[in-house]
Write a protein that binds this DNA or RNA. Structure first.
Length: 276
DNA sequence: ATGACCCCTCTAAGGGGA
């Protein structure tokens, strides 16, 4: 199976590039993040012409995830039980960790979708950004990661399993261009890294794909200030797989070519191949 | 050259990304 993950930063804005990339790279299963459209607005017909079935989970404006597959798409799960949701900030008049709106439970953002593709259970996730350490958004990020761990522990015994996506965490200092540049910021704090480690310790392997140029396995480069051509990036898009898949991993790459040129996403696709 | 933010929409004196 050729499995890919890509934060496209709007599937509508990226559609021409996405279609060209799918036709060129021919992945079997693709996890997308930040589709930024409602499920009904996803260009399923366009990717369908290339042989892909689509399962999408989106709310229209922010976030949004999808799975595309050429090898079957069964048992689709949108969201997950235990998702803490995010409902507001202290400035809104409530300083509780996850303030509950007066008219109901916190809304669940569209950040996770699961499906079974040719016997492999696959999740596409877009972990909350966190914005600023110790903010409500940051606490939501940590709670979200902890809650998602339950999905993994529940489903991992059932067979080959992969969780792919934008984790918004750089697991180690080797995953950022300059650790000093990130002091005091999210994505690198001990608590965020511990949350990802805890997720992996359920029995997953973080597959670090091969960079196409240089030694840095970065998957994201800020649009601003020429960060990409200076290779000032981060590795925050992860492919985490169960033992059975890890044993069968073959070629892997981070497609930095897809970050070049006119109108790219700020993230590059990550591609791994494996046999079971 | 990969070349110096870009996505969304309540089209901004905006929100969010990481």
């Amino acid at each position: 199976m050729r499995l890919a993950t890509w934060n496209v930063n709007s599937v509508k804005a990226r559609l021409p590039r996405l279609l060209d990339w799918l036709a060129d790279k021919q992945p079997d299963v693709v996890c997308l993040q930040e589709i930024k459209c409602a499920e009904a607005a996803f260009p399923a017909d366009e990717v369908g012409e290339l042989g892909y079935e689509t399962a999408a989970h989106g709310d229209g404006r922010w976030n949004g995830v999808a799975i595309l597959s050429k090898v079957g798409l069964a048992d689709v799960t949108r969201g997950f039980a235990g998702d803490p949701g995010y409902a507001g900030e202290p400035e809104d008049g409530n300083d509780a960790l996850f303030p509950t709106p007066p008219d109901g439970p916190p809304p669940h953002e569209t950040r996770a979708i699961g499906a079974t593709c040719d016997g492999v259970r696959v999740w596409s996730v877009y972990v909350p950004n966190g914005r600023v350490p110790d903010s409500p958004h940051y606490r939501y990020k940590l709670a979200w990661l902890e809650a998602f761990r339950e999905v993994v522990t529940t489903e991992l015994p059932n067979g080959p399993f992969a969780v792919c996506g934008d984790f918004n965490v750089a697991p180690t200092d080797a995953d950022v261009f300059d650790p000093k540049a990130f002091i005091g910021q999210t994505h690198v704090t001990p608590a965020e890294r511990a949350a990802v480690t805890a997720l992996l310790e359920t029995g997953l392997h973080d597959i670090i794909a091969k960079p196409m140029k240089g030694d840095n396995p970065f998957t994201y480069w800020d649009y601003r200030a020429g960060m990409f051509h200076q290779d000032k990036g981060m590795r925050i898009d992860l492919v985490c797989v169960s033992d059975a898949i890890a044993k069968g991993i073959g070629s892997t790459y981070i497609d930095r070519e897809a970050r070049k040129g006119k109108g790219p996403s700020d993230h590059a696709p990550v591609v791994v191949e494996f046999i079971l």
